[in-house]
Design a protein around this nucleic acid. Structure first.
Length: 604
DNA sequence: CTAGGGTTAG
């Protein structure tokens, strides 16, 4: 009689099962050490040329940001393996790791190798175009799409619409043409088209398309909602919000963000408190909203509350809140955030550290900024720019220039932001000659064509250095339209050097500005008025008169969140006039404290 | 026995 053997597979079988299971989930592996172990196993089992395993390995390495290893896997997969998936995986790896160019190169190599692209290839390639404004590239890919016959695979034209939408107004037109020509459209096609029109700022056309949609999902409503909030049409946005068939956390967050940007922090907070569920993004929006507007107590209180919920901040949350602190000079919250960064996994993250450097620099805490900068292992151009600009704007021009040389020594190529920092540094340190030299050689030396900011720095520099006439001359001759800051610095220079004989130049410049920027002079006059700087108020009124602007009795335009509102003296018509007067008063105090002479206008 | 792609808030 035979005993039944226990049903138990030999060990090697179960091991193999286990191994296979792991192979199937290879691309979901997030741990780099585990992944390397898996790779060893794959190679030992001679599976590195397997048409399914190899692409998975590439994806896995790509997800772990190990693009070098991904490439190695690709190369070792062998040419015998003429596999679209392999190429697709490599293209995606490049594109997802910010090497879009290499992705396109791979696409070309693939065709040279005689391998036909498929629908996935194009989706990946198009993703590589995002963030860049490269219409010619997108339309080139479009041509390939048509050539290979993938224009009816719904994913591909949808990706195309999205890619086109990031190429400015012309791109959006191309997107519209493609959209109208599509055989069938799904809800994503419609949503992408609405999003494209909104990106181009065409709110009414977007709404038209939105109304035409055969079916709308959450994304459709949220996209349209965001369009209205970005345009600061909060009442329309609220109407839409009320009428939405369903509201998710994105809808609520969009509204909170919209009210924050519109400056209505109370309404924002009310909605924030009413949200049925909050996530990291919602908290980030509300805290940044408070921080940006300088509401210290509210911002800190909410930040502490968020930490108490146990939410872990990610890179975007850190960067957003720190940027808001930088904007309003909110050092107290900035420091708190820094504490959190130190305890997080992002204390060596370049993006986060750059935000810290910028925050400390803008808050005037140069020592701390420098400490973060020095401790940063992987500095990029932004790190250098933030530090140089920070030093420069606080009168440490020599140190800024030193850093500039060091940065070049280390092989970084200065960009336009660097040069603003350098000119700013020269300006705030009285290095007039150096500033002039840098300005006039920046195109030759660094290939940077001067923009308004650069002109602004130089004009400020000239004016402060006593070359008032030259400053005016430059403002008049510059190929770009002078902005309010340039105006301010010219006025400052006039006052500083008692140059009243420049009326003609002033008029010339005003002609250049008018009539498009009618409100700006008044806005400026208002700022000086709040600062109690009556000399400049008188100056501006004189200028306004000199170009025959009709005198408006005591009315002035005050810029509030990019919108000009008209006020007359002691106007109480506006619902929030109390708040506004308070704010203007506060602004005046600030200006008095900060600038005996009108502040430099090349910062920011 | 297989994977992989497109749209919304910071």
């Amino acid at each position: 009689m035979q005993m039944p053997t226990p049903i138990r597979a030999p060990t090697w079988v179960s091991r193999r099962r286990h191994f296979e299971q792991k192979l199937w989930d290879l691309d979901k592996c997030k741990d780099i050490n585990q992944l390397k172990q898996m790779q060893t196993l794959v190679y030992k089992s001679h599976l590195q040329q397997d048409p399914f395993i190899a692409p998975k390995l590439i994806s896995a390495f790509s997800n772990c940001r190990q693009i070098g290893s991904a490439l190695k896997v690709f190369e070792q997969a062998g040419e015998s393996n003429s596999n679209v998936r392999l190429y697709n995986a490599l293209i995606r790896a490049y594109v997802c790791n910010f090497q879009a160019l290499k992705g396109f190169e791979t696409f070309l190599n693939m065709q040279c190798a005689g391998i036909f692209p498929d629908n996935f290839t194009f989706s990946f390639l198009l993703k590589g175009c995002s963030g860049k404004c490269c219409l010619s590239l997108v339309s080139m890919i479009h041509t390939h799409v048509v050539k290979w016959g993938f224009e009816d695979d719904i994913y591909v034209p949808n990706s195309l619409i999205d890619a086109y939408s990031k190429c400015g107004v012309v791109g959006v037109r191309a997107a519209g043409k493609l959209f109208r020509g599509m055989k069938e459209r799904d809800v994503v096609s419609w949503n992408s088209m609405v999003g494209a029109l909104l990106k181009a700022g065409d709110l009414s056309e977007a709404r038209k398309v939105f109304d035409e949609m055969p079916e709308r999902d959450r994304v459709s409503w949220n996209t349209m909602l965001d369009g209205y909030t970005k345009a600061e049409q909060m009442s329309v946005a609220f109407e839409l919000f009320k009428n939405m068939p369903q509201r998710d956390v994105v809808s609520w967050s969009t509204m909170v963000s919209g009210y924050c940007k519109a400056g209505d922090l109370e309404m924002a907070r009310m909605l924030f408190d009413k949200m049925p569920s909050k996530n990291l993004i919602s908290w980030t929006i509300m805290i940044s909203g408070y921080a940006e507007k300088g509401l210290v107590n509210e911002a800190i209180e909410l930040y502490v509350q968020m930490e108490e919920t146990g939410l872990r901040l990610d890179v975007a949350a850190f960067v957003s809140i720190l940027a808001a602190c930088a904007e309003s000079g909110m050092l107290s919250l900035g420091k708190r955030v820094h504490d959190t960064v130190e305890r997080s996994m992002y204390k060596c993250n370049t993006l986060v550290c750059n935000a810290l450097i910028d925050m400390y620099a803008k808050c005037g805490s140069l020592h701390k900024a420098y400490k973060v900068f020095n401790g940063l292992k992987k500095r990029d151009l932004v790190s250098w720019n933030a530090m140089i600009h920070g030093l420069g704007m606080h009168g440490r021009g020599k140190k800024a220039l030193e850093l500039f040389f060091k940065m070049k020594q280390e092989g970084f190529v200065p960009d336009k932001v660097t040069l603003v920092g350098i000119l700013c540094a020269c300006n705030h340190t009285g290095l007039v000659d150096e500033g002039i030299i840098y300005f006039y050689s920046m195109e030759k030396d660094y290939g940077v064509i001067p923009e308004v900011e650069h002109y602004g720095c130089l004009i400020d520099l000239l004016g402060r250095g006593g070359y008032v006439r030259e400053a005016f001359e430059l403002a008049r001759k510059m190929p770009l339209e002078p902005n309010v800051k340039i105006w301010g610095s010219l006025l400052g220079a006039c006052r500083m050097h008692k140059a009243v004989e420049l009326a003609d130049d002033v008029r010339d410049l005003l002609v250049k500005l008018e009539p498009k920027n009618a409100g700006k002079l008044s806005a400026l006059s208002n700022i000086y008025a709040s600062a109690g700087d009556w000399d400049n108020v008188a100056n501006i009124r004189l200028m306004m008169k000199s170009i025959g602007r009709p005198k408006q009795s005591g009315a002035s335009l005050l810029q509030l969140n990019d919108e000009y509102r008209e006020f007359t003296v002691m106007d109480k018509s506006h619902v929030k006039s109390d708040k506004i007067y308070q704010m203007v008063d506060g602004l005046g105090q600030h200006l008095k404290l900060l600038s005996p002479v009108p502040a430099s206008h090349c910062d920011e």
